[in-house]
Simulated assay, not measured.
Amino acid sequence: MIRVLVVDDQPVVARAHRVFIDRVPGFTTIDVAHDGKAAIARVVAGGIDLVMLDLSMPGMHGLEVARAIQGLPDAPDVMIVTAARDLESVRAAVRYGAVHYLIKPFTFAMLRAKLDHYASYRAAAAGRRDVTDQGEIDAALAALRDPGGAVLPKGMSPETLSSVRAALVAAPEGLTAAQTAEVVGASRVTVRRYLEHLTVTGGCEREPVYGGAGRPELRYRLRTERS
Rank of each mutant, 00 (worst) to 15 (best):
M1V: 04
M1Q: 04
R3M: 05
R3D: 08
V4T: 06
L5W: 02
V6L: 01
V7N: 07
D8M: 11
D8L: 04
Q10P: 00
P11Y: 03
V13G: 07
R15A: 12
F20C: 07
D22T: 08
R23F: 00
R23I: 08
V24I: 14
G26C: 02
V32N: 09
H34S: 14
D35A: 08
A38I: 01
A39V: 06
V43Q: 06
V44Y: 01
V51F: 02
M52H: 07
S56D: 07
M57P: 03
M60L: 08
M60G: 01
H61K: 03
L63R: 02
A66D: 04
R67A: 10
R67I: 10
A68E: 15
Q70N: 06
P76Y: 03
P76S: 03
V78R: 00
V78L: 10
T82Y: 00
A84F: 03
L87N: 03
L87W: 07
S89A: 14
A92E: 15
A92G: 05
R95Q: 15
G97W: 14
G97Q: 09
V99Q: 05
H100A: 15
H100L: 11
L111F: 13
K114N: 15
L115Q: 02
L115P: 02
H117A: 14
Y118M: 11
Y118V: 13
Y118L: 10
Y121D: 06
Y121A: 09
A123N: 05
A125V: 09
R129G: 12
R129K: 11
D130K: 14
V131T: 13
V131M: 15
D133T: 06
E136H: 07
D138S: 12
A139R: 09
A140R: 03
L144C: 12
R145N: 14
R145D: 15
D146L: 04
G149Q: 06
A150T: 12
K154P: 11
G155S: 05
M156V: 01
M156S: 10
M156E: 10
P158A: 15
S162E: 14
S162K: 05
S162G: 15
V164H: 06
R165D: 15
R165W: 05
V169P: 06
P172Y: 10
P172S: 13
G174H: 04
A181R: 02
V183G: 01
V183M: 06
V189C: 00
V189N: 00
T190H: 04
R193T: 11
Y194A: 05
L195S: 03
H197M: 04
H197D: 09
L198M: 15
L198C: 10
T199N: 10
T201S: 15
G202T: 11
C204Y: 04
R206F: 02
R206A: 04
R206C: 06
E207R: 13
P208W: 02
V209Y: 06
G211F: 12
G212C: 12
A213I: 14
A213C: 10
R215Q: 12
E217L: 10
L218P: 01
R219M: 03
R221E: 05
L222N: 09
